[in-house]
Amino acid sequence: MMIDPPEIVSAMEQAGFTHVVWIPDSHLGRWETAIEQSRLSLIRVCREGEAVGVAIGLMLGGAQPVVVIQCTGFFEAGDAVRNAVHDLKLPLKLIIGVRSAQAAQRGATTDNCPHFTEKIVTAWELPHTRFDPTTADAATIQRELQTLAHQPSAAAILWAE
């Protein structure tokens, strides 16, 4: 079972997101065509902390963005996340691609990204769920994204890559 990018993007739209602020990686980048063909506005930024800054402005202006970045970028974006979530107390929503997570489940990687991602997300006191697209169907991703979008606080989905 494997959900495809149009199903993921459709679920984002149905959840009510208006903008995707992102820096793609080799996994998340497969969503690009589907996002461009959707009603979602795709905002390309240069670094991940900047993605959070743009999302802050979007939220203040009444939009409902989701920040889509790889975990390495989340590590880089720590201060912006801290500011958005804990200073401004805005309901920042993120999808964080966890590099090598699927390989780590098989014991087939030395990448330390899976080891650190959940620890760092937890350190920033960001409510989160894990999501594995290889074992999920369209209904599951719809449910996950609805929950993410409608959670009143900031939250993240840790997306196994």
């Binding site: 903008h19 506005s41 905002i43 930024v45 902390g49 900047e50 993605a51 959070v52 800054g53 743009v54 999302a55 802050i56 402005g57 979007l58 939220m59 203040l60 202006g61 009444g62 939009a63 963005p65 201060d79 912006a80 801290r82 500011n83 958005a84 200073d87």
Partner: peptide, 28 residues
């Protein structure tokens, strides 16, 4: 007026861009 403090240093311009994009229909 929005005094972005406490801030994340360097995020003022992205914040302003986000405001513009969110309010694009109003041309804010």
């Amino acid at each position: 007026d929005f005094h972005y403090l406490p801030s994340s240093m360097g995020q003022g311009v992205p914040l302003g861009l986000g405001l513009c994009l969110a309010q694009a229909e109003k041309g804010r």
